[in-house]
């Protein structure tokens, strides 16, 4: 069920779009490409389905899964349901990296990805180092470190906008910061997919420990958790996943906050179930929102705008229905 839902969402997103395609055409193209059959298909269908919509949907699913699950993991680790995947400064770090690359390398894609990823990691590393006191990393200090680093990188983003060429560079920066999957290709999946998958696997592996870590430092220690190592693994995995996602998609807010919450209402708070459900629902959500962004108007609406516009009313509706799910 959990693995099936994102697959369904991906198939659905192959069908819908401004150029409608039938399910049978999709089947034919996919079978052709997998060398299982040899149907006669229009070239335009092959390109549209296999080279444009499919990579975009796969990337969307991966990004959604990563953002949602990192949010869920961080909420557990920081014992705060209001935390999202950007708490340690990943997003603002990536944003600055991308903006810097757009100015320095005039929007070269590889450079933008590389810089975004590197600065995302750097931001989290800085937050972690600020949070380190007396050789331990109390949760509250980590949050503080994240706040400090985020605000520094936000200022730096503003600075790059200020110095950017207002006709060529500034629009690219602004557009990047709004988040989009429009340029998705298989190469993106190959490159950014590696950190994303490593992060997803790491969080899946350590998911029960997140329950124990959410007891708070003192109790978790007394329950036999190696705080430093286990926290490190959670932070490292979530950071890889988010950084991988952000560097190809730009900053997409709200997924990392709302999806874990929806899952908490639906499946409860045990991270053994919550982590995989967040992945699945995050994947579905982002793929579907991206579909809506593609078809709703003549030109595309950036993802980062739509996630909140669509997610917020849905969240409110769910809050009313489940009475907050035990909060």
């Amino acid at each position: 069920m959990l693995a099936l839902a994102p697959v369904m969402a991906i198939i659905l997103s192959l069908v819908i779009g401004r150029y409608p395609v039938s399910l049978s055409a999709i089947g034919q193209v996919v079978l052709n490409k997998l060398h299982l059959a040899n149907y006669q298909v229009a070239q335009v269908h092959t390109v549209l389905i296999w080279d444009i919509r499919l990579p975009r949907a796969i990337l969307g699913a991966l990004v959604g899964a990563c953002l949602a699950v990192s949010g869920a993991a961080f909420q557990g680790l920081f014992r705060n349901p209001l935390v999202s995947s950007g708490i340690l400064g990943v997003s603002s770090g990536a944003g600055f990296g991308a903006a810097l690359a757009i100015i320095l390398f005039h929007g070269n894609t590889s450079a933008t990805y590389g810089f975004a990823f590197a600065f995302a990691l750097l931001a989290v590393l800085l937050s972690y180092m600020i949070g380190q006191v007396y050789n331990t990393t109390p949760t509250i200090m980590l949050v503080l470190g994240g706040v400090i680093v985020s605000s520094v990188f936000s200022s730096l983003i503003s600075f790059t906008k200020y110095v950017a060429d207002p006709y060529r560079e500034l629009p690219s920066i602004v557009f990047w910061l709004m988040g989009s999957l429009a340029t998705a290709s298989y190469r993106d999946i190959m490159v950014a997919g590696i950190p994303m998958l490593v992060g997803l696997v790491g969080l899946m592996g350590i998911r029960w420990r997140i329950n124990v870590l959410s007891m708070g430092d003192k109790e978790a220690h007394a329950l036999g958790v190696n705080l430093k190592l286990d926290k490190g693994i959670v932070i490292f995995s979530a950071t890889l996943a988010t950084a991988g996602a952000v560097c190809v998609s730009g900053i997409i807010g709200w997924v990392g906050l709302i999806i874990p919450h929806i899952c908490r209402m639906l499946v409860g708070n045990d991270n053994r179930v919550l982590i995989p459900s967040s992945m699945a629902l995050g994947a579905c959500f982002l793929v579907l929102v991206d579909d809506i962004g593609r078809i709703i108007t003549g030109s595309e609406i950036p993802l980062g705008i739509l996630t909140a516009l669509i997610g917020a009313p849905f969240f409110v509706w769910l809050l009313k229905r489940t009475k907050g799910g035990g909060w």
Binding site: G76, R79, S214, L223, G224, D270, G326
Partner: peptide, 16 residues
């Protein structure tokens, strides 16, 4: 923090 069930809470005693 999070509303874990009672049995899930007790299971955390097995972490070690």
């Amino acid at each position: 923090t999070f509303p874990y069930t009672v049995i899930d809470m007790v299971k955390m005693g097995r972490a070690v």
